[in-house]
Amino acid sequence: MADQNRTRTQRGPVTLVLRFVVIAYVFVLVIWPVSVVVQRTFAPLNGQEGGFGAFVARLSDPAVVYAFSLTGTITFWAVLINTVFGVGVSLLLVRYRFPGRRVLSVLVDLPMSVSPVVVGLALVLAYSTGSGWFGESLASIGINVIFSTPGLIMATAFISLPFVIREVVPVLEEIGTESEQAALSLGASGWQTFWRITLPSIRSAVLYGVVLSIARALGEFGAVKIVSQGAAFNGETATLLIQNRYGNFDESTAYAAAFVLVVAAVLAIVVVNLIRKPEGST
């Protein structure tokens, strides 16, 4: 019923103008800049050769391989942590009423609004060995957070925290508790109910959140920039590599790495749409 009213059947001049404005807007902001990156990736630049072979060669540079594998590691752990905690926090927010619930709900959104640079600074203040609150004690048991991979994972987890939660919470609210209660009355334990009933019901929301988190984690720059030493083979992630190479007259490698990130982002969007489709049709 609602679907019938969503699209207009009449196509007047207003529709045409709106369409032109929207397309122009998207073109100027997104399509054109991204297409320049793609073009530069494969074009000869500053006397260096272009084409697909050169592109692959640039990506095979050990420093580039290191950067991407570091980004991969960080993304894997940050997303894994956020998926487990995201589902847990969502259940807590939706299924339980406790003092501070609304504060928690607001805090979960904080990473959306706070600048990643601030996040990085905050982590350095809390965990660095020099001035940090926990840094000294953690360092004494052999864990260095700042300027090492755990710090990068923490920073990335922080900034990608809301994605899973914001996808799962509305679905949990919508499905309600009745089928969970039905499972309980049929003899299922809380854990069985979660695995057999709750999780399958929120599965596509979790997947959607995970894909968004991956996209966000791959592209994170600000928080990572502060927490990482940012040198080649020493905490240089893909985004940091792009910045370093771009500033050090190795633009073609920067473009090649950027292109990989663009492809990853496009893949994420495709996956997200594939997940959304079957849901909309039922």
Binding site: E178, S179, Q181, A182, A183, L184, S185, L186, G187, S201
Partner: peptide
């Protein structure tokens, strides 16, 4: 006793089906 241990069958107004 928790609901699992009472051996009661419960039918809800809105069916509470396991959709999947």
């Amino acid at each position: 006793l928790p609901p699992q241990k009472r051996n009661v069958g419960f039918v809800f107004q809105h069916y509470a089906v396991f959709k999947h």
